[in-house]
Design a protein around this nucleic acid. Sequence first.
DNA 1: TAGTTGTCTGAGAGCGCTCCCAGATTTTTC
DNA 2: GAAAAATCTGGGAGCGCTCTCAGACAACTA
Lengths: 340, 340
Amino acid sequence: MSELRLEDIAKRAGVSRSTVSRVVNNQPNVSEKARQRVLDVIKITGFSPNAAARTLVSRRSNTIGLVLPHSVSTFFTDPYYPHLIKGITQACNQYDFTLALFVAGSKEYQEKLLPRLSSKGFLDGVILQSGHQADQSIILELKKTNLPMLVAGRPLYNDEVCFIDIDNIAASEKAVRHLINCGRKKIAIITGPLTSTVGLDRLAGYRNAMDSSSLKYNDNSIIESDFTEQGGYNAMQKLITIKPDAVFAASDMMAIGAIRFIRDAGLDVPKDIAVVGFDDLPIPMVNELQLTTIRQPVVQFGFKAVETLIELIENDLPIIKRVLMDTELIIRKSCGFEPG
Amino acid sequence: MSELRLEDIAKRAGVSRSTVSRVVNNQPNVSEKARQRVLDVIKITGFSPNAAARTLVSRRSNTIGLVLPHSVSTFFTDPYYPHLIKGITQACNQYDFTLALFVAGSKEYQEKLLPRLSSKGFLDGVILQSGHQADQSIILELKKTNLPMLVAGRPLYNDEVCFIDIDNIAASEKAVRHLINCGRKKIAIITGPLTSTVGLDRLAGYRNAMDSSSLKYNDNSIIESDFTEQGGYNAMQKLITIKPDAVFAASDMMAIGAIRFIRDAGLDVPKDIAVVGFDDLPIPMVNELQLTTIRQPVVQFGFKAVETLIELIENDLPIIKRVLMDTELIIRKSCGFEPG
DNA sequence: TAGTTGTCTGAGAGCGCTCCCAGATTTTTC
DNA sequence: GAAAAATCTGGGAGCGCTCTCAGACAACTA
């Protein structure tokens, strides 16, 4: 079918290649008559220009990469990622970009992905899902390619890198303050892995809220876990020994696990122990348990990430951009809050 | 950094552009001395060839597209898709392909995705996730582009199209036969939407198994649902009126919902009603409930899909390929089977 | 020695497009 | 009316690569 070139369309429309190019790219300086004739021929023939040739000369592929390093091992189980991708593809559709997905297995990154990522003329820019210390070297390598890059999630060390993240510290503060306002006195936290900024930042928010109140807490109030349901269950098992009257779990899955343990222990949520989670993804259990939680705008986050990357791409000089997105406290029943 | 061209490497290595090209592409007819010198320069400079220029002349982008039409509305909630993508990206990594992901919103397909899909020189081939009647027109339009295409999931109408699917009919037969072997007499089915081949085929398997036994069933034994947990619950509510002693649910999520209703009704699984599901994705509930189910090899399916598409791409003449993959019956406790 | 093979090398064309520029044509200005 | 400005058009160069082909050279055969 369409082995047609610009030249062929030009011939059929009785104009030159240049004019067809102008029409295809919606440029001015084409007479209405010529434009219409070209448009007609294009419609009849079903012509569409060769992307590779275009990219070669214009230096723009209109393709961005999303890189999920191996540290993102929860990709295949965590509902977070489909929602992230939803936002990203929505933005790609809107801005006429194509998304290339790079998922690294354990050792594939170095040999397989990096060469493809750094090959000139394929990607206009890259979003790297990160925030884990293991990704430090990947960030450095990608920086070397000079490709516009946006890290999704605050990078642990790297300062001279653009990133977008939700405001985890403020969000956690909000969650813990709410527990304080509900009259809870002994508030514990189940954190994510402290090798990642998500884990660290949500703990920092807890500390901030606690420090600015008169409540006491110590290392025993803080249990590090892994964002999974079972992890939350196990963490709660340890936590129960200090008899907290409230727990802030740094993810909904961990909150669900914590609640499971609390109930197994014969206690009541929220009467004995109030629980607040983090994420508010549409997991059926969240609603069923009436979990109070922090809603992070995952879809919008993905969308905004693409918009930010496009800015980076369109800006010639390298700039450092940092974007922090706000979250929302969703009050349900697991924190024992009684409105009014 | 690397605004380097083949020519520049050639100059530095004291050879010609052609020789560098040969080295880069691992071609013969280069002396060991020359090859080594070129390799050294490439290493030092960090050169990597321009993908667009390569694609333009070689007519190969080494990029394939995965298209998820709007009919795949469960993309963002169903754990099936992350696993599918896992298999696809694994294969892409292995065969040195890049994956471009196209997710269509409600009306975006026509205006946004199709032009990008059909633009020559960007994709070598396309995998279309389908099996729903709504995708018929998409299949036809994609066929017109002459792009090698593989449908993942049996297409409803289109015969002259390549596809890969699991053997849903044989799988369902296996599931229902197992219930029969367990001594169940009144076996009902909760199907998926009968607008899709998955729904239809799994029902066909049920009919096959029942027909080849002496057991009776009628339209009341068949409830159409939607693959969701709530849908399974509702379907079981209707089914309970005919008092079945076994239910085959065409997805694990529906099986989970069905079990929830059975228990709400004060009945026992498997004593009163045996339940078999379909999927065996790593949903925590599946294990918790000890659900007997059909395991479909999702990751391998994605992998095989890529391999098949690559065959299609490498074959000049258009061939029709059909691949059916086998499934496995995983016997747990929800069907009341006692081994030995 | 001359002829035949085989290995290695570099020049040249061309993939299909965009963009610059010069020339043709129309429109505006005084 | 001629001159100036604005609009339109097409040819040519060139993006960075691959691939063909002819020539240079080395290594065998007779």
